[in-house]
């Protein structure tokens, strides 16, 4: 009851100005969402905006003088193989982001459909989907990915990588969405809508879906984070795309060449900082969305 948002005139009922004021008032109360989003936006700006200024070829080996410290020519220096680390930052972040978004998106779409079917229709549909998901959930994801990745014939590219990762990325969303739909379909407001003449389909899309959106968003962010974690992990093991300058691949070379002992601190710090910003940003956004989806935790710190 703290905010006076509900107060005031009745004339602006149903206008967009009223809606926007509600949204901005909410964002002020959820700093973790805002800070996380800012971190991710900075990375996105670097990864997308930077492509206008930096040549993709600079991220390839032997394209520049090797082992240069940061300076006028190379703002972030170059690695032992002559890759420009600024180019790696731009294109590596872009590629890692792409894999995560594609895999996370596929995962959430598949998960949302399966979870919704299971939760809304229940019965045998639910039993089959849940059993399938549960069995697959007990299998460690990295393991399956590693097995698949090593056995893909020929050279992997980031698109294939995204698809491989999405093969497992749908499991958590399926569980989460199913659980949520199971709760929501029994909600009192479903009855109210029914009484208000809303059709079955209308109830799904107008009553349930809007309430699912925070969960879908949270699921999506979580799925993206998990997918990125998996892709960077695979790359760091040397199992990712060999010919593309991903951040994980850079970490792989750092570990293989022992960059710590050779004193090339800029080699490992660039991808490391990019990755940490990425994961912390995703974490904060996901924590913020969690609060949005689950108002109960708003009481935290009381």
């Amino acid at each position: 009851m703290a905010n006076a948002d509900y107060q005031g005139a009745i004339e602006d009922w149903g206008t967009s100005a009223r809606r926007w004021r509600t949204v901005s008032a909410y964002l002020k109360r959820n700093p973790s969402l805002v800070v996380g989003a800012i971190l991710l936006l900075i990375l996105a700006a670097v990864a997308i905006g930077g492509q206008a200024f930096i040549d993709y070829r600079d991220a390839a080996p032997l394209s520049n003088r090797p082992s240069r410290p940061p300076g006028a020519d190379y703002p972030l220096g170059t690695d032992k193989f002559g890759r420009d680390l600024l180019a790696i930052l731009v294109y590596g972040t872009f590629l890692t982001g792409k894999v995560g978004l594609v895999a996370g998106f596929l995962g959430v779409v598949i998960g949302a459909v399966l979870g919704f079917l299971a939760g809304f229709f229940r019965g045998i549909t639910d039993t089959l989907i849940s059993l399938f998901t549960d069995v697959l959930l007990t299998i460690p994801p990295l393991l399956v990915l590693v097995v698949i990745a090593t056995n893909i014939p020929g050279k992997l590219d980031t698109d294939q990588m995204a698809i491989i990762i999405s093969l497992l990325a749908w499991r958590q969303p399926t569980r989460q969405i199913r659980a949520q739909v199971l709760i929501m379909r029994e909600a009192g407001y479903v009855k109210t809508a029914h009484l208000g003449g809303t059709s079955r389909l209308g109830i799904v899309f107008k009553e349930l879906m809007p309430n699912l959106i925070p969960y879908l968003m949270a699921s999506f962010v979580l799925a993206v984070a998990t997918a990125m974690l998996a892709s960077v992990g695979l790359e760091a093991l040397g199992l990712g795309p060999q010919n593309e300058p991903t951040l994980g691949m850079t970490i792989y070379w750092v570990m293989l060449e022992g960059a710590f002992t050779t004193g090339l601190w800029w080699w490992w710090s660039t991808p490391l900082i990019a990755l940490i910003t990425l994961f912390v940003g995703l974490y904060l956004v996901s924590a913020g969305l969690d609060e949005l989806a689950n108002p109960r935790t708003r009481r935290r710190g009381a």
């Binding site: 509900y6 149903g14 009192g188 407001y189 109210t192 208000g196 809007p210 309430n211």
Partner: peptide
């Protein structure tokens, strides 16, 4: 419970 938490009460 009769109100959808996503909407303001005018929804019902």
């Amino acid at each position: 419970a009769s109100y959808n938490p996503f909407y303001k009460v005018d929804h019902v």
